[in-house]
Design a protein around this nucleic acid. Structure first.
Lengths: 152, 152
DNA sequence: ATATAGGGTGTTATGTTATAACAATTAATA
DNA sequence: TATTAATTGTTATAACATAACACCCTATAT
């Protein structure tokens, strides 16, 4: 957890934003979807689908894969979470952005992921694309390394 | 296939480079590893591990997953191929570069992937990292969209 | 030439990640 | 309140990847 980081607020904010987005788009944040989003937001580390599945399951009832993958698909489509492709795991969306520009720093020591907003990088990416005659519509930008805290 | 693109030369060049790299590093490009590299280089589209496995198998003999994954691991470690994380597939390395800076354009129409060398993008990525206090050691940069030919 | 150490391969089994297909239920709407 | 569209439940399986151990080459040192 970051110093001076009140994570409970992160979770609360994320859920509030999700509610707003869903209301605005007239789509439903059903209990399962909300629960999955909450579970993902328990930390800033990406979460695996089958770990979510385990957490959704109780003594009495074991959830099956489609339950969690459907919730994940919904949350992904609505940009409430992202998938970290290089680790097959999911993380809450921290930023209000369009589809193109998700960029993640993945720390190999603490496993936390930070999503950044960086127009300059977007600009360079777009320029590079245009130079190739390429029309981008979705990017996977995942930078693995060591975060500032872990480097100390 | 690109216009004026003699793909047989691509394959030949790739294999020649691989031989050179292996000689230089005193490592062995065994028949299986070479065959896998050749199969990957059959096109500029990323290839799935189990498709390689099928191609390695003959009427008389079915190869098993470890055979192909070991060859892939070897080729990845020596930067002779890359993994496209967002599609769980593998592609020949087109560029002489250090570990940090693989960047791919993935066309959603023809499925071809182009690896680019773009120091300016590296520079911006590094600046963005430093701004976060982040020490990068490996990047996943995969831009999905439509390539120039397919856009016509 | 031959012992041996290390790298490479064969094989079985299993672990991990994700989706197809169809039935049943619930919510929105006419 | 009947209809329809969206959501969920359930079974099965597809797709992707590795662990573990036995065996076999091949390089090298004696």
């Amino acid at each position: 957890m970051r110093e001076r980081h009140r994570h409970a607020l992160c979770i609360k904010d994320a859920l509030t934003r999700a509610e707003q987005v869903c209301t605005k788009r007239a789509i439903r944040l059903t209990p399962t979807r909300k629960k999955v989003l909450e579970l993902i937001w328990q930390s800033h580390k990406p979460v695996k689908a089958y770990d979510l599945l385990a957490k959704l399951s109780t003594d009495g009832h074991i959830e099956k894969p489609p339950t969690v993958y459907r919730a994940l698909d919904f949350l992904l489509e609505n940009h409430l979470i992202h998938k970290i492709e290089s680790s097959n795991a999911f993380i809450g969306c921290e930023i209000d952005h369009d589809e193109l520009d998700s960029k993640f720093f993945v720390c190999g020591v603490c496993d936390e992921v930070k999503e950044v907003y960086e127009p300059k990088l977007d600009k360079t990416l777009l320029e590079t694309s245009l130079k190739q005659g390429f029309t981008p519509n979705q990017t996977t930008i995942e930078i693995h390394g060591t975060c500032a805290r872990c480097a100390k």
